[in-house]
Simulated assay, not measured.
Amino acid sequence: MSRIVSIVTPVHEAAVGFLSAAFASLRAQELPDGWDWEWLVQVDGDDEVEVPANISADPHVKVSFGRRGGPGVARTLAWGRSQGELVKVLDADDVLPEGALYRDIAVLEEHASVGWTVCRVLDLMPDGSLQHYTLGEPEAGLLVRGELYEYWLSTHRPMVHPASLCIREGLLAEIGGWMALPASEDTALLMALDVIADGWFIEEPGLHYRKHPGQTTAHPDHRGGAEWGARMGAIRKRTDALALRLASA
């Protein structure tokens, strides 16, 4: 019986047109011996979104519709239906390059103490070109617990791209999935993971992050204003509480 990596993908109307490219990138993945993948596609509250028939018909794919709750709720609902021992994040408008899943699985098989992985990301521009995603990328290899949160506290930006996460399912269950935020729910998860378990940064690019006007990060409230402040506050409160609980255990 194969071991499973579960890919969770929230879908809303602005991104459904990119879903076929994400699917093609999944089908092209080669996994280590004994592994297979499942794709949990969660449509977020829009009954008019039509998932292409060739995707819905694939036995690896499980499509579901739910009440609108935002990306964090959609991701958590997708995870709730999963069967895998690893959970991989993939947004509907993004693409996995060759070898991405293989590298995630290989790291987590080789390093039992590592709870999650992230990787180098390339921005996929509207003209099809790839550009390097620049933040404060760390050295390849082990990410010691708390390292990324310390960086985030001073910048309110993640050092690595949270859209590239692959996580041990039991660790995700401990945290309780994604926060119910209108955005930054992936950063919130990354910060929580960072303070409770070591991670690993994979130097090879493992995600092509599509840039387009309909993405959540293009919203005017994403990087400022009252909503931004509340999101940052929620991330900080949960992460501080997790770090304190672990320190006092």
Rank of each mutant, 00 (worst) to 15 (best):
H219A: 15
R238P: 00
P213T: 03
A234F: 02
T239H: 04
L242W: 05
L244G: 03
H208E: 12
A243L: 06
Y209I: 00
A243T: 01
G225L: 03
M232N: 07
R245A: 15
T239A: 08
A218K: 07
K211A: 06
H208R: 10
D240C: 00
T217I: 02
S248I: 10
R238F: 06
T239Y: 04
P220I: 03
G224S: 14
I235Y: 06
E227R: 14
M232F: 03
A230W: 10
A234N: 10
H212S: 03
K237D: 15
M232P: 00
L244R: 09
P213G: 04
A234H: 06
M232A: 12
A247F: 03
R245N: 09
P220N: 08
L207G: 01
A243Q: 11
L242E: 05
D240Q: 09
L244Q: 11
H222D: 11
T239W: 04
G233H: 07
A226I: 09
A218G: 02
I235R: 05
L246T: 01
Q215N: 14
T239V: 13
Y209C: 05
G214H: 04
S248R: 13
G229Q: 14
H212F: 15
A226K: 10
R231I: 14
R223I: 06
H208L: 12
Q215S: 13
G225V: 05
K211Y: 05
D240Y: 03
R238S: 07
A247G: 10
R223S: 15
H222K: 05
L207Y: 01
A241C: 01
M232T: 04
L246V: 09
A234M: 12
A226C: 00
T239G: 07
R231K: 10
R245Q: 11
A243H: 03
L246N: 06
R236F: 04
W228C: 06
A230F: 09
R210K: 10
D221S: 13
G224L: 07
